[in-house]
Design a protein around this nucleic acid. Structure first.
Lengths: 104, 104
DNA sequence: CGTGAATGATATGTAAATGGATCTTATTTT
DNA sequence: AAAATAAGATCCATTTACATATCATTCACG
């Protein structure tokens, strides 16, 4: 059916890593701004640990991202809006991807 | 500057509650689908405790929502896309709102 | 009114996130 | 190549998420 929690964590980690590199920041810098330790940020980026909601929000903001909860039916539209995001720096937008197999 | 973590949790809780009521589900039903206990879901909905990332994803999905990480610069656009969402049932879309005071 | 369902709220115990220290292994940089 | 910096990885102590049980309160409805 869909992505397991582990997969979601891995995906989030990948996005964080890609965004961080796009911003040319070190793990320590991001961890610092987000107010967590580097070992912890490392685990979150590696997807081997499920951060608290508040921690994830802090990390996201440290990277210039915002956490949003979007109606599943709107995900494709939002995705489409985000993809052609060719700015100075472009990061992929993360979706928790149930799979994409909604009957939209 | 911006929203504290506590405020973010309260906002998330409000969205969850509004969405749940829109879907006419009980706390127990959502908790059940999300795989957590009712007291636990109650606390998260009340914003008095920060769920793990995986838990939040599960709850969101139980309510037909998806967790997304969006570049802050794109938040207004996504918000605009989400607001006129007058479907069969319409839920507000959550944003972790740093405040809206980005120089966009 | 009163009966039951939904919700608010708390307590105890377990599991997992987090911080801090430390060590190793890349990856740069000079 | 050596030095420095970043990243991978593991340990222990503390905090907190979460389950389960329980009771109070509110709310819908006959």
């Amino acid at each position: 059916m869909a992505q397991s929690q582990s997969d979601a964590l891995l995906d989030i980690g990948q996005l964080l890593k890609a965004t961080r590199k796009g911003r040319q920041l070190t793990q320590e810098q991001v961890a610092d701004i987000a107010g967590i330790s580097r070992p912890r940020y490392r685990e979150i980026e590696a997807g081997s640990s499920a951060a608290r909601t508040t921690t994830l929000i802090n990390i996201a903001r440290a990277l210039g991202l915002e956490l949003m909860l979007v109606p599943q039916a709107m995900v494709p539209a939002v995705d489409a809006l985000l993809r052609p995001h060719d700015d100075l720096d472009d990061f992929p937008a993360f979706v928790a991807h149930p799979d994409g197999d909604l009957g939209v």
